[in-house]
Amino acid sequence: MTAFEFAEGYSAYLLLVVLFAIGLYGMMMKQNLIKKIMGMSIVQSSVILFFIVSAYKDDATVSVIDYARGVTNPDLYLNPLPHTLMLTAIVVAVVTLGVSFALVIMIYKRFKTLHEPTLRELMK
């Protein structure tokens, strides 16, 4: 395998691993709860993009029937299963974001801070 083929086949996966690590960095190291939620959102995006990238096929078209191509040869269409799964995952991600913001608002109302070590002190 030449270097060009390697870059063509795996660069997307490697970039998404980097995106995942950036989100995980936000969740682990940042001490503000809003920044932690941003990290969680980045991790979700990277996983969703990972599934979408894995659905790609060479020389294939979107998974809506093209009557000129027919349906007998599945190599002519993208794999529709990851697209479907990620469609539901995106909506659930939005609702998760809403609920987490609601929790953050309640925490701020009660403790007047979102700094995690301070919160841990206050909750003792």
């Binding site: 083929e5 063509e8 086949g9 795996y10 996966y13 995942f20 790609y56 096929k57 060479d58």
Partner: peptide, 23 residues
């Protein structure tokens, strides 16, 4: 952890392979 994920990603079938197990 990122290095582990990268090693795992390199062992996947390449992007766009029509003969990968899922396709």
């Amino acid at each position: 952890f990122a290095a582990l994920l990268m090693v795992a990603a390199v062992h996947l079938p390449r992007r766009g392979d029509p003969n990968s197990p899922a396709n």
